[in-house]
């Protein structure tokens, strides 16, 4: 009896040590892998803070000797990224407002009203997700050209005021998860449909609205093909377009990669900032909307 107990204890402690070693190895593996994922990012930040010659030093050094914060000023002013940044900010800001508001109203219509052809229209709306951009972009170009909108921000902003398929889908799913009794009791109290939207649906939809806003922000801020086609003079370039332009124009033999890296980081930081600000909402929105299935 006693022997078997001590035996069990021994195996138990052996089991625990083995598990401990396993866990440590696993931690090491996870850490190594995730650090190697982060590395290019760290390298870009480090390069953006080096001098033009230090950036090409051999053997490479991980950190700049003296951080050159002035690189960012130079990229912002001399490379004109400041202008591109504000262009992007205007386009993204106005698109974001349009996309969130219009998609929300449309999603409410799909979620809370009965009308003939609703399911068919919704499927039609979802089919927009499947459509390659190329299949509409040529007629859109000729149309915007006829309207005199080429080289303005309008082609990038106006279409967002008519809802986006992804946002409508996500918001509809979310609105449907709000109990219908909320609406009904408000209706009995004499509230209008619009009041229900603003007073009942909106406060209950915040995670979904945040998700849609983040995705909308990223789509608009990162957009490349649309601005490339619709905008032709450099003064109206958005940030990604400006960055591409900068890459093409500084091939003059001088080491300027540090400026490009600063530019890439200027383009990336706002996305990080938005994400950090709204990440809790965002993940909740993704999970609860049921896109997983």
């Amino acid at each position: 009896m006693q022997a078997s107990t001590s035996n069990r204890l021994r195996t138990n402690s052996w089991y625990r040590t083995r598990k401990e070693i396993g866990n440590t190895l696993f931690l090491l593996f996870t850490a190594l892998l995730s650090i190697s994922f982060l590395f290019p990012f760290v390298w870009a930040i480090s390069s953006s803070l080096k001098t033009g010659f230090e950036v090409m030093a051999y053997p490479p050094t991980l950190l700049p000797k003296v951080p050159q914060w002035y690189n960012y000023v130079q990229a912002w002013q001399e490379a004109d990224l400041g202008r591109f940044f504000w262009n992007s900010a205007i386009v993204t800001g106005l698109s974001l407002i349009g996309q969130v508001l219009s998609s929300f109203v449309v999603a409410y219509g799909f979620a809370r009203f009965r009308f003939p052809g609703r399911e068919l229209l919704f499927i039609l709306c979802l089919s927009g997700l499947m459509m390659p951009v190329y299949v509409t972009i040529i007629p859109l170009f000729t149309m915007f050209r006829a309207l005199g909108w080429i080289n303005t921000f309008k082609p990038l902003i106006v279409p967002t005021y008519f809802g986006s398929a992804f946002a409508i889908f996500l918001l509809r799913q979310f609105i449907q998860s709000i109990p219908l009794e909320f609406d009904e009791s408000a209706l009995i109290d004499g509230a209008s449909r619009w009041t229900i939207l603003t007073r009942i649906i909106t406060p209950n939809c915040q995670p979904a609205l945040a998700t849609v806003a983040i995705v909308g922000f990223m789509t608009s801020w990162n957009a490349f093909l649309g601005p490339l086609i619709f905008i032709d003079s450099a003064k109206n370039y958005t940030l990604p377009l400006g960055l591409w332009f900068l890459k093409g124009t500084i091939d003059d033999g001088l080491p300027r990669d540090h400026l490009l890296m600063a530019g890439a980081m200027i383009t990336t930081f706002p996305v990080l900032l938005i994400f950090v600000l709204a990440q809790n909402y965002f993940i909740e929105g993704i999970v609860m909307s049921g896109i997983k299935g």
Binding site: S102, V105, V106, F115, L121, C125, T136, L140, F162, G163
Partner: peptide
């Protein structure tokens, strides 16, 4: 039903102008 159509009308208009129309045009 009428109100429902009113609420989804931004999408309907946008779909015709920016999706279905261009699709057929191309």
């Amino acid at each position: 039903a009428l109100q429902g159509f009113l609420y989804i009308s931004p999408w309907i208009i946008g779909f015709i102008i920016f999706v279905a129309g261009p699709l057929l045009a191309s």
